[in-house]
């Protein structure tokens, strides 16, 4: 397997997601989503035994997932972490620092600890849930606009100067 990714979320309400949502409500009341969720998103590139290697890493290093406060799952799976509300239309965007010490350091640490893996990449995954009347195309368009901070009063979730922004395809 060339890439295995996991999603990690806080068991308690995520304060960053709460602040982001209330800010979006204020600056973009018309296009703002009803729900906003934030996840740590780790991509493991070329793990030797695929999911097994990743699982071993995740269970080993509590810095990546601390089971006492976070839950995790492989992404693209059953989406068990996504909390309820099937009524909403969800769009997902991945924000990744173009240069990132966290990823580099973890790549170093894992390789030094003899894990057979090419590298690990850290991102933040935002999930935006819009009311049921919204079309998928519109949800994606709004999400992109709310993510890319181009002007002071446009966008919030990512600064395109230092971060890569990827709108994820729906599974």
């Amino acid at each position: 397997m060339t890439e295995v990714s996991i999603e990690v979320r806080l068991k308690a309400p995520d304060p960053a997601a709460m602040t982001a949502l209330s800010t979006l409500k204020r600056i973009n009341p018309d296009t703002c989503p009803g729900r906003l969720e934030r996840y740590d998103y780790w991509r493991f590139i070329r793990p030797l035994d695929g999911k097994r290697t990743v699982e071993e890493i995740v269970l080993h290093f509590h810095d990546i997932v601390n089971p006492n406060k976070q839950s995790w799952s492989f992404s693209g799976g059953s989406g068990i972490l996504l909390s309820g509300d099937e009524e909403l239309v969800w769009a997902e965007v991945l924000v990744t620092d173009k240069v990132d010490s966290i990823s580099e350091n973890w790549t170093d640490i894992l390789r030094r600890n003899k894990y057979e893996i090419e590298k690990v990449m850290y991102s933040v995954l935002w999930r935006l849930g819009y009311s049921s009347g919204t079309s998928m195309a519109e949800a994606r368009e709004r999400t992109l606009a709310l993510t890319i901070t181009s002007y002071r009063d446009h966008g919030l979730l990512a600064n395109p100067v230092s971060q890569n922004i990827n709108l994820l395809d729906q599974a």
Binding site: D97, D153, N159, P160, Q163
Partner: peptide, 9 residues
């Protein structure tokens, strides 16, 4: 008003 720089990690 345009975001042209970032203070990254």
């Amino acid at each position: 008003g345009r975001i042209e720089s970032a203070l990254a990690a």
